[in-house]
Design a protein around this nucleic acid. Structure first.
Lengths: 229, 229
DNA sequence: AAGGAAGTGGAACGGTCTTTCCGGTTCTCC
DNA sequence: GGAGAACCGGAAAGACCGTTCCACTTCCTT
C-alpha cells in the first residue's frame, strides 16, 4: 500500500507497517505523469480505457504504468478516493441549504454536470467500470450524505416521500450521459423534468430549458449491451 | 437485395430487377437458423454481438453467416425492418385511446418493457449500435406516429406542451436499461415518476411501484464510454 | 566514484475479434 | 445420372488489447 509521506513523496509501507524507501525521484515524476494522464483519459473515455492509452498520454512506457499500478483498481483508487470526498462535501452543502428544494435542485444540476464532465467519476459513483471496487469505501461515505439530503427535503414536505437516494443516483447517472461538455442546457432540461416528477406538488409544469434533444442525444444513452460474456 | 417470394422462399433480385434463382434449400434453412439465432443474441447482447457468436448459436460456420449477410446492416435490416412496423402499430393504438393520458402511459410502459426485453431493438430505435443505419427508414416511419401521440395528449391538455417525441424516446431508452426481464416493477417505477414530471397538472405524487432500485441497477445505466476512439 | 537496486520501455506473447479464403460437399437442372 | 454452380465451415490472416519480460538506464547509498 502507498500513501504520501510528510513531504509528499511516496513511501512504501508494507502490511506489517515497516517503512521502506520512498520512490525514486524519476519514479515519483512518472507516477505523477501517469495520474495526470489517467485523470484526463478516464474523464473522457471512462474506466475501460486501456493502460496503453494512458501510457501514451503520459509519455511513459506501458510497462511503467503496470509496474506502478499492477491492478487497475490501484489507479482508480489513487484517482477517485479523494474525489468522492469532494462530492460528499458538495452533497452536505446542498443538504445545509435552508431551502431544501433549492438545495436538492442545486445538487442534481451540479451532479449531472460533474458526471458529464468526468465519465470515470460517473462510473465510480455508479459502481461500474473496471476497478470501481476499490472505491467502495468512498461510495459508502457518500450514501448517508445523499440520504440526509433526501430526508431533509422529504421532511420539509417538498420531495415526494417514496423516493430514495438510489433513485436520485439513477436519475443522475442517466442524465449525465446526455450530450457533451457544451450540453448543460440539455441536461438541465431533464433535471427540470425529473424535479417536476419528484415534487410533492407543483403549480403546473416548470418551463423546460429550451435545449431540444436531437436523435444523436438518444443514441448516447443506450449502452452497448454485451454484459454477460 | 433480397425479399420473400410468393411462397416465402428467398429469391435474388438484382438492382436491375432481373430475377435470379431462389436460395437453395440448405441455404434457406441456414438463413432461417441464422435469423433465429441473431434475434436471440441481439435481444440479449445488443447489436455489437459478433458474427462468431451468432454462428455458434445457429450451429453454422461463421463463413456461412458472412456469405449470407456480408454487412452487419444486412442482418439488422432483415431482423428489425418489420419489427419497427410492429412498434409503429403499437404507437398508433396508444394514440387512438380516447383517454390520451392513459394512451401515453400505456405506450411508455409497453415501450420500456419491449426495449428491456430486446436490447437490439432498443439500439435500433435509438440509432445506436452496428448496422442501425439500415433501418433509418423504419425510424422515419415511427417518428410521425410518436409525434401524433404526443400532439394528441398535448391537445387534450394533459401532457406538458414543451416536450417532444425525442424526449419520450430518451426517457424510454434510459428506463429500458434498468434491471433484467424480471424487473418490470422497477421500470414501471421510473415510468410513473416520468409521467408525474410530464403531467400538466396532478394532485400530488402518483404512488410509485414499490420496487426498490438496488445499486446494481445504478451500475446498469452507466454506459462504458470509449466513444471517440 | 562506484556498486547495486530500483526503474524504464517497448517488444513479445497470448487471446479475442473481424473478415476472407478455398478444399470439399450439396443441391439443382437437364 | 451427371455436370456444375451454390454452398459450407473452419482455418488463416490481420488488427487490437492486456500483460509480462528483460536488456539497459537511472538514481541512491556508502
Amino acid at each position: 500500500m502507498f500513501r504520501f509521506g510528510y513531504d509528499g513523496v511516496m513511501s512504501s509501507v508494507t502490511s506489517a507497517g515497516t517503512a521502506v524507501r520512498p520512490l525514486r525521484k524519476d519514479a515519483e515524476r512518472n507516477r505523477a505523469l501517469i495520474l495526470g494522464a489517467a485523470r484526463e483519459v478516464y474523464a473522457a473515455q471512462g474506466l475501460d480505457a486501456g493502460f496503453d492509452e494512458i501510457a501514451r498520454a503520459a509519455g511513459v512506457g506501458v510497462g511503467t504504468v503496470y509496474r506502478r499500478f499492477p491492478e487497475r483498481g490501484d489507479l482508480v483508487e489513487a484517482l477517485f478516493e479523494q474525489e468522492i470526498d469532494a462530492v460528499v462535501a458538495r452533497v452536505e452543502q446542498a443538504a445545509a441549504d435552508p431551502d431544501p428544494w433549492r438545495g436538492l435542485g442545486d445538487f442534481l444540476r451540479w451532479g449531472a454536470e460533474a458526471q458529464a464532465a468526468d465519465r470515470g467519476l460517473a462510473q465510480v459513483l455508479a459502481a461500474a467500470g473496471r476497478g470501481h471496487e476499490r472505491v467502495a469505501a468512498g461510495r459508502d461515505r457518500l450514501r448517508p450524505a445523499v440520504e440526509a439530503l433526501v430526508r431533509h427535503a422529504q421532511q420539509a414536505g417538498v420531495l415526494r416521500d417514496d423516493v430514495t437516494e438510489v433513485d436520485l443516483g439513477i436519475a443522475l447517472a442517466m442524465i449525465s450521459q446526455l450530450g457533451d461538455a457544451g450540453s448543460s442546457d440539455l441536461r438541465d432540461r431533464y433535471v427540470t423534468l425529473v424535479l417536476d416528477g419528484l415534487a410533492v406538488r407543483r403549480d403546473g409544469p416548470t418551463p423546460l430549458p429550451p435545449a431540444q434533444p436531437s436523435e444523436d442525444d438518444l443514441a448516447c444513452v443506450v449502452a452497448p449491451a454485451r454484459r454477460h460474456r
